[in-house]
Write a protein that binds this DNA or RNA. Structure first.
Length: 189
DNA sequence: ATTTTCAAT
């Protein structure tokens, strides 16, 4: 069983504040990304690592994650086994904002060149997708065309994140008001 | 009706 120190877990209030899927998320000037890395061995996949990060100035969370990928997934590149095959990984991430157009393009290009990496994206809120003609709607469409599963987080996803990434102690995830309604609204985009 | 967003100060 994977066991990590509390310091790598998110504080409860930080999780709630950043992932709350309210329609106008005032003051959420950061983006958090919680991730699970699994190594795929034939039909089985084993949990390999997990954690979270947030953007730094000038680097969106998604691209920051990509910069850590080599360390998170040893053998993803190069030939890692005696039969000259690369190792396969699957990554699931939960992002507080959906990817912007630029990140989506970079991500899509990256994944096309890395077929041994499978990615699933869950997003809590849609980044600038309300505006008419928003280029960031591509943040949802572009990766999908490359075979990435992109979904809006629902109650069960928040629940899972709470259990997996948050220092919850013994407290159970408690849904905020409007969670489900906001989820439904987001999902329609 | 309007509010908000991977800051800028």
């Amino acid at each position: 069983m994977i066991r990590k120190l509390d310091s790598v877990l998110l504080a409860q209030n930080k999780f709630i504040y950043n992932y709350k899927n309210m329609r106008w998320a005032k003051g959420r000037n950061e983006t958090y990304l919680c991730f699970v890395v699994k190594r795929r061995l034939g039909p089985d996949s084993l949990s390999f690592d997990f954690g979270h990060l947030h953007n730094r100035t000038g680097c969106h969370a998604e691209l920051l994650f990509l910069s850590y990928l080599g360390a998170l997934c040893p053998g993803l590149w190069g030939c890692a086994d005696d039969r000259n095959r690369r190792l396969s990984y699957s990554v699931t991430w939960f992002c507080s904002w959906s990817p912007c157009a630029n990140c989506a393009t970079t991500l899509t290009r990256f994944l096309r060149q890395t077929p041994n990496l499978r990615l699933r994206i869950f997003v809590s809120r849609l980044y600038f997708c309300d505006l008419e003609g928003s280029p960031h709607v591509e943040g949802l469409r572009d990766p999908r065309r490359a075979g990435v599963q992109v979904k809006v987080m629902s109650y069960k996803d928040y629940f899972y994140c709470w259990q997996t990434f948050v220092a919850h102690r013994l407290s159970r995830f408690k849904a905020w008001e409007g969670l489900h309604t906001n989820y439904v609204l987001c999902q329609e985009n």
